[in-house]
């Protein structure tokens, strides 16, 4: 009991915020300036474009219209958005389950091994995304390695179509996002106080209890960060879903991309993008409000 209380106190400690003096204001100006110029201004531009029209060549015509938004609020686009969110959710969940034990193992390893292992997690992704994905295609395709292996081991008698299925899509997504789950969780695990865990074991707790009552709460910030860094980018991802899924199930990222290329309708793409941003910001704001009320 004492252990869990201590753990809880450490996990939910309030930040000792001071009012910003001159120095901190000066220090934060570069980031503010960056945000203002390269984030806010482009976002505002998108907002403006989303209310515009376009001509036959795809150039933007600056005349105010709501048509892009009325067009966006259609079931067909919302369905595609829903599928994208669902894929992102599945990917995040699987990454969490697969990645947490790895992060835990690396974080609790000796200092020498730790650095090596964490680099080894990332190194495969310093190859080009396309050759990695094509390597997966050659593993999973009908004439590929996996089928060859399964048939040689006599587990199956005919090749299975792994490629161009939702299974392939999730596999591709999980593969590409796994390090972005492992790394943040690792940073939380790394600062775990070993004596806390030892104490829990000495008090006779089973590993499962130690985990759920001590380790998981303490690594919660890392998990939250990992979930954020996987779920958020995964929604707008389309290159992987396109290559691994055969393009059969378009994602919202692909739809927006198409507006800027084949469909030559930049304002509509901008409107969809603004909506996506709005959904995000709303859910982030809601979740922070929820967290605040929880702490009180």
């Amino acid at each position: 009991m004492a252990v869990t209380a201590a753990a809880a106190a450490l996990a939910a400690g309030p930040s000792p915020q001071r009012r910003a003096g001159l120095g901190p204001w000066f220090a934060v100006t570069p980031m503010l300036g960056w945000l203002a110029l390269f984030v806010i201004v482009p976002t505002l531009m998108l907002l403006v474009i989303s209310f515009c029209e376009r001509d036959g060549l795809g150039r933007i015509v600056y005349s105010f219209t709501f048509e892009n938004y009325t067009r966006a609020f259609d079931w067909k686009w919302l369905k595609i958005l829903g599928i994208s969110v669902w894929y992102a959710f599945l990917t995040t969940a699987i990454c969490l389950v697969l990645g947490y034990p790895v992060a835990y193992f690396i974080g609790r390893s000796s200092e020498r091994v730790r650095g090596l292992l964490i680099m080894l997690v990332m190194i495969p992704f310093w190859t080009s995304f396309l050759i990695r994905t094509y390597a997966w295609i050659s593993i999973l395709s009908q004439d590929g390695l996996l089928n060859a292996l399964l048939m040689t081991l006599k587990i199956t008698s005919a090749p299975i179509g792994f490629m161009y299925t939702p299974f392939a899509v999730i596999l591709g997504l999980v593969y590409n996002f796994l390090p972005f789950m492992i790394l943040p969780i690792y940073t939380s695990v790394e600062k775990l106080d070993g004596s806390l865990i030892e104490a829990a074991y000495d008090l006779g707790a089973r590993p499962a209890r130690v985990f759920s009552k001590v380790v998981l709460p303490l690594t919660q910030p890392g998990m939250a960060a990992g979930i954020l860094l996987v779920f958020v980018p995964a929604i707008a991802m389309f290159a992987i879903t396109n290559l691994m899924g055969g393009g059969a199930n378009p994602t919202i990222g692909e739809v927006i991309q198409n507006q800027f290329t084949k469909a030559r309708n930049q304002p509509f793409g901008a409107a969809l993008g603004v909506l996506l941003l709005a959904i995000f910001i709303l859910s982030l704001w809601l979740s922070s409000k929820f967290r605040r009320s929880e702490q009180e």
């Binding site: 984030v39 482009p42 976002t43 929604i235 707008a236 990222g253 930049q266 941003l277 995000f280």
Partner: peptide, 22 residues
């Protein structure tokens, strides 16, 4: 805090085009 998330959420093509125009 919310503004910081915008580049993560924004689809890459939107960011690319708007930065190009900028």
């Amino acid at each position: 805090g919310l503004l910081i998330f915008i580049p993560m959420v924004m689809p890459e093509v939107l960011m690319g085009v708007s930065l190009l125009v900028l």
